[in-house]
Design a protein around this nucleic acid. Sequence first.
DNA 1: CGACTTAGGGTCTACATGACTATAACTCAC
DNA 2: GTGAGTTATAGTCATGTAGACCCTAAGTCG
Lengths: 234, 234
Amino acid sequence: MHSSANVTERQAQAPALAISIVIFALRSDPSSGRQEIWLPLVRRVRQPHLGKWALPGGPLGGSESLQDAAARNLRETTDLEPTYLEQLYAFGGLDRAATQRVVSIVYWALVRPDQAGLARESENVRWFRASEAAGLAFDHDEIVAYALQRLRGKIEYGSVAYHFLGDRFTLSQLRGVYEAVLGRHLDPANFRRQFRSAKDIAATEEVLQGGRNRPPRLYRYTGSPVAEPPSGPA
Amino acid sequence: MHSSANVTERQAQAPALAISIVIFALRSDPSSGRQEIWLPLVRRVRQPHLGKWALPGGPLGGSESLQDAAARNLRETTDLEPTYLEQLYAFGGLDRAATQRVVSIVYWALVRPDQAGLARESENVRWFRASEAAGLAFDHDEIVAYALQRLRGKIEYGSVAYHFLGDRFTLSQLRGVYEAVLGRHLDPANFRRQFRSAKDIAATEEVLQGGRNRPPRLYRYTGSPVAEPPSGPA
DNA sequence: CGACTTAGGGTCTACATGACTATAACTCAC
DNA sequence: GTGAGTTATAGTCATGTAGACCCTAAGTCG
């Protein structure tokens, strides 16, 4: 599939179509306690870029939608179900791959590493801090940077933050998500005030017991669990 | 990464890759004087959907980037240069075309119909009011609706409004753009106050003479003329 | 019990926004 | 030439929100 082709052959070929996916999850640093953004990468087991780390992905199956293909690649690498999945961008520069013209439609996803999904690493699948994911294969460095930028943009406006968390969460946990994504400290009191008046969040009767300090109240996200309509943007 | 089928099988299944483009321009209604959003459509001259109106577009050339392909399709239908060009979305549902799986990477553009470009219509190219573009071929109705939604979202946050206008414009003209895109009346005084303090807009020494009323001052957009970095999102 | 830490509520100020009023500068009808 | 009409432009006032900051509540731990 990667037989070296001269220029004429390359231009005659239809561009190959691939799906890649940037999968974000949060993990607490054991020492500082702060949350950080992590993502799984897959080691290249063939040329080109053999041995380098790359985004999960693969060719688009003939009988699946773009979104389905992204979700399938996510499951195959992490064993997790996405709580959020959205198209990021279609990358189609001429020089993305040396041997063949490849157009990659990239999705980005948020997962909740509740189960041992984040621990399910192998020789060829490993989780990295987003801040330390560099030197990746192809143009995947740029793609990850763009996905992070989009994540930051989306969290300010929209409702993606909740998709990092379980169905019940404290405002401190939610604030931790925002601080991890935005990369700066947020005032707890102002954050609370802002989200108490938010539409799609509701206080439950429960509090979280077992902590060292005053037990915090648990909240619930009441908005729609999926951000993207099933048949693409409507 | 994945056990690959042999080349012939894969190419038989491989979805076709196409570029489409939604081109927006503003035109004043002669009776009301208000501005409206227009876009050019192309009549289908072959099956499927023969005779229906559709978005400009075509197959992706083998030696052009996605952005270049979109710009080329724009020039071929309108003879205008885009002042703004950005990727909209990649549509890849299974049922988009009856006979063949087609993945369309759709761009959207803003043009300034300074020259006679908007008048350059033909049997198979015609401009339509965006509000009246319905019954289009394929899923192009949805694509136009989504592009309009994106335009509205972008105009509130960003700097796309200026790309509908020439290099010198009055605040009334700029307000006209906002009113056309957002579909509602805006208070002239408040609009003025907001944009006098905007960063990327500067007053010139000139005023626009020849109108019926008090001559308005001309302003200039000082931000970057292109929104998208040349090599895709950075 | 007192020290410590996080939860949660409040105040004060600065700033942006929407509604509204007032004045300036021009054309046109007469 | 004068006044009506229209748009340009400035200012005012009330409201809402965000950031900085302070205070109290309710737990744990020594």
